[in-house]
Structure formats: C-alpha cells, structure tokens
C-alpha cells in the first residue's frame, strides 16, 4: 500500500516550464506556461519535443509548437543556444533535474528573433569572412604533408578550434550587439586560431586589420564571455593575444609610413 502511494506520487511528479513566445520578428513577445509529467534524464530539448507533441498550455489552451533550433543534441553543433533560467547555454545539455522550476526558456536577447526561440546568427558566420577565417592552401592537389606542428601548438589550436559558433559569448558580452561595430570574442578567437597556423599566418596582418576595423579596442575585458563559453575556449587568452598582434601591426604601420 505504502509503496503504491509513493509510486503514484512519483508518477504524478511534473515539470513546469515557461516559454517566451514571439510568432514573428515584429510581433509582441508573451509567455506561455506548460506542465508535463516528469521523467528521469529530461533536458530542455526533450521538454520542447514534448511541447511539440502536445502544444497545450497548463491552463488547457491550445497553442502551437514553439520553433527552435537543435541538431546534434550533444553540444557540438552549436544550434540550440537559449537563455534558460536567465543563463545563456545550450538547451540540449541543460538537464531539467538541475534547474529550478518553473524553468524559463527564452531566446537570446542580442540577436534578432525569427520566431519563438529561433534567432538570426548570420552575423557570426559573416564575421568569419571579415577575418579571413581560413588557411590559404594552394589547392587540393596531393602536395604532401602539412607543416610540422608540435603537440603543444596542436593543443592550443584545438582549444580555439572547438568553437561551435553558438553565440553564448556574444549574448553575455556587454560590448557586443548584432548591429554595431564590435566583432566580438568568437571571431577574435578564430583570428588567433588562424594566426597560429604556419599557413594561416600569411594573412595575419589582414586578419588583424579586420579586427581593428571591427572594434577590437572596444573590448573592456569584462571576461563575461569566457565564463559562459560551453566549450571552454580560451577567450581571455585570445583577446590578449589579438591585442598584442594589433599593437605589433600598428607599430609596423607607423614604421612603414615613416619610411
């Protein structure tokens, strides 16, 4: 009897969450509350999947499935960035049992909302063009091995190269906004990545110029970005490295002009 009772309370345990809805880019945002049965190992994506299956609010109103982005479901593609209980993070690794309820789920605030939890992050990919984010190889012909890389250089590059363009750092940065000058920490770290590589180095000056033209000096070194990066990209190291490269570049310009 006793066990039965606990079992019923177990099965009746629920998860309460609220989603910030916005049906079009220009319409008003509003909140909707939902409640679904609790299960072990739920995460924010499983909640959203449940909301898609039964798009009915906790008051019993019929709603629509909330649009969102997600692909890998294991924190490697960068799609599912959202603000969960006030903190920007990946929805796929945000475990329900670790979150206070009702869980609030909102889109990032710094990017234009497309619909509901979907935002427009095109600028992050564009910024990779501004910094010439590539190693300029000659072509795809079989030209033999690449340059020798030491294990410690590899580890440094690998750290920057894990950046999945999720946007957490930009959301948290007090200086960055989608329509203004500052390029932001993600692109800064990527320039530093390509400047490490012996082939990528050849574009270092152009890359640094790209950063300077896009407000590198605006960074106030508040370090919010590094604190929220889910991939532990060394953003602080990258910013100081980029600043040093910028100083070098400017010194060269002055000397160059002086001649």
């Amino acid at each position: 009897m006793n066990t039965n009772n606990t079992m019923t309370t177990e099965t009746q345990k629920t998860v309460k969450f609220r989603i910030k809805r916005q049906i079009t880019p220009d319409s008003e945002a509003y909140w909707e509350d939902f409640e679904i049965p609790w299960k072990a190992s739920l995460n924010i994506i499983t909640l959203l999947m449940a909301q898609h299956t039964h798009p009915v609010t906790s008051l019993g109103h019929k709603s629509t499935p909330a649009s969102y982005e997600a692909n890998c479901l294991e924190e490697v593609c960068g799609s599912c960035t959202m603000v969960v209980n006030g903190k920007v993070q990946q929805a796929c690794t945000a475990l329900v049992d670790k979150l206070e309820q009702p869980i609030s789920i909102e889109p990032m605030s710094k990017f234009p909302v497309i619909r509901d939890l979907m935002v427009d992050r095109k600028r992050m990919f564009e910024s990779l063009k501004w910094i010439k984010g590539w190693n300029p190889v000659d072509n795809t012909a079989p030209l033999g091995e690449g340059p020798r890389i030491s294990p410690s250089e590899q580890e440094k590059a690998y750290n920057f190269s894990r950046c999945m363009t999720c946007g957490c750092c930009l959301e948290s940065c007090p200086q960055w906004s989608a329509d203004e000058g500052f390029i932001g920490p993600q692109a800064i770290a990527q320039s530093v990545l390509f400047n490490i590589h012996p082939t990528g180095k050849s574009l270092e000056d152009e890359r640094i110029k790209g950063l300077i033209d896009n407000g590198l000096n605006v960074c106030g070194n508040a370090q919010n970005c590094a604190a929220v990066c889910p991939k532990e990209v060394d953003l602080i190291g990258a910013i100081s490295q980029a600043n040093w490269q910028a100083t070098k570049y400017m010194a060269k310009q002055i000397l160059g002009n002086g001649h």
Binding site: V137, E145, G146, E155, A157
Partner: peptide, 10 residues
C-alpha cells in the same frame, strides 16, 4: 595530408 595542410589540429 590535405586536411593537415588545411590546418586540422590532429
């Protein structure tokens, strides 16, 4: 080799 040249941090 090509990926190595393109900078993959193997």
């Amino acid at each position: 080799d090509l990926f190595d040249r393109m900078g993959v941090p193997f």
